[in-house]
Amino acid sequence: MRRTISVLVENRFGAFDRIATMFSGKGFNIRSISIGETEIADISRMTIVTEGDDQIIDQVVKQLNRLIDTIKVVDLADTYHVERELALISIGLHKGSMEQIKNICDIFRGNIVDITNKSMMIEVTGPPDKIDAAVNVLAPFGIKEMARSGIVALKRGEQLKIQKKENFTT
């Protein structure tokens, strides 16, 4: 099962490597990982998407906590939270396909960010399942290249009582 874990880490030399090393050393999967600044100068936030049953996720969280450089580890499955991902998708153009792609782009509220007479690049943001859907619809046109940012996520301001593990992502 896919799980999103949010980790606050010391913004320090080696901290990222230490976390990546732990994942590979313990044989845990990483589906995506993103890292960036937070509101505090010397703290970064990593959003890690991993996979596993409850026992594995329990270990992932504990092993992350055990690292000296991690300050806070939250398994977002236990919370109401927002997940977002950004994708840049470059698609080859054929006769008459431009209009269709533009329509799809509109439906997904994407932006066209680059265009030549051979290809166009669109930018889509949203929850990861929306990106998946866009990719699926665009695939038949011939995706030439794609870059996905990995997920960033944040807890919502108000935490309603929810059933554990029910994701609320839009």
């Binding site: 026992q55 329990d58 270990q59 504990k62 092993q63 906590n65 055990r66």
Partner: peptide, 8 residues
């Protein structure tokens, strides 16, 4: 003392 040992 080490939580990672538990249920590992």
């Amino acid at each position: 003392i080490d939580p990672t040992c538990i249920d590992k």
